[in-house]
Amino acid sequence: MKVIGAGFGRTGTRSLKAALELLGFGPCYHMSTVIAEPYRVRQWLDVGEGRSRDWDTLFAGFRSALDWPASAYWRELAGHYPEAKVVLTVRDPARWYDSVSATIFRSALEQRARPPLRRRVIRWMVARRAPDFALYPRMARATFIDPVFGGRLDDRDHVIEVFERHVAEVRAAIPAGRLLVFEPGDGWEPLCAFLGVAVPDVPYPQVNERAAFRRKRPRRLARLILRGR
């Protein structure tokens, strides 16, 4: 592990994943990795519920890790991989909340409510065909929704306060030479200087995280599962 991402989801982590892989720090572990390989949901459920924290097995084959659920364990990962550098992705807290509340948090809050019949049928099909992925909501609650936010996803002031406190805690805990505080618009120069690599002759990746999230919504996942993919 060469790079540990300490930033919350929805802070430009998809673009940074693409950037790190272009720079030779891939494969990069990301929430999209868990979505693509649902057996990893059980691994994180074991972490979140206190049964196992075998980081070397969990991240085998990866040279970097970003986004939830990994970033919820930034402190443990920084201790376990003392040579790895830490990148804290940040953005304006209010804009971040608007983004996360419309995507990740919205999905989590929908899981708490009694959904319409159609969605309940989709969940049933997912559970039948992909039992590991059916555990995703429980894994998310165990790894970051409850321990990081106390489950209070619809409390804007609380969530923003958690975000700001998290940024302060990472800044205080990680020595300056090991930490890069990185905003989505910063581009290649500060990242490459921090990692000690040359700036590529291509634009910094701009991945639309909201569009990527929409492609993961349960209905689309159910279609793929039912097609045997």
Rank of each mutant, 00 (worst) to 15 (best):
Ala94Met: 04
Trp96Gln: 02
Trp96Ser: 03
Trp96Asp: 05
Tyr97Asp: 03
Asp98Trp: 02
Asp98Leu: 01
Ser99Cys: 00
Val100Tyr: 00
Val100Arg: 00
Val100Asp: 00
Ala102His: 10
Thr103Glu: 03
Ile104Pro: 08
Ile104Gln: 07
Phe105Ser: 01
Arg106Tyr: 15
Ser107Trp: 14
Ser107Thr: 05
Ser107Tyr: 11
Ser107Gln: 10
Ala108Gln: 06
Ala108Thr: 05
Ala108Val: 05
Leu109Ala: 08
Glu110Tyr: 04
Gln111Met: 02
Arg112His: 13
Arg112Gly: 09
Ala113Thr: 08
Pro115Arg: 11
Pro116His: 14
Pro116Val: 09
Leu117Val: 05
Leu117Cys: 08
Leu117Tyr: 07
Arg118Ala: 15
Arg118Asn: 03
Arg119Gln: 07
Arg120Lys: 13
Val121Cys: 08
Val121Ala: 07
Val121Leu: 13
Ile122Gln: 14
Arg123Met: 03
Arg123Gly: 14
Trp124Tyr: 09
Trp124Gln: 13
Met125Asp: 05
Met125Ile: 15
Met125Tyr: 08
Met125Ala: 09
Met125His: 07
Val126Ala: 03
Ala127Val: 05
Arg128Val: 03
Arg128Gln: 12
Arg128Gly: 09
Arg128Cys: 09
Arg129Leu: 06
Ala130Thr: 14
Ala130Asn: 13
Asp132Gly: 13
Asp132Arg: 14
Ala134Arg: 00
Ala134Asn: 00
Ala134Leu: 00
Leu135Tyr: 07
Leu135Met: 10
Tyr136His: 11
Tyr136Arg: 04
Pro137Gly: 02
Arg138Leu: 07
Met139Tyr: 08
Met139Lys: 11
Ala140Arg: 11
Arg141Gly: 14
Arg141Ile: 15
Ala142Asp: 06
Thr143Ser: 02
Phe144Gln: 06
Phe144Ile: 10
Phe144Gly: 01
Phe144Trp: 06
Phe144Glu: 04
Ile145Tyr: 03
Ile145Ser: 02
Asp146Lys: 07
Asp146Asn: 08
Asp146Met: 04
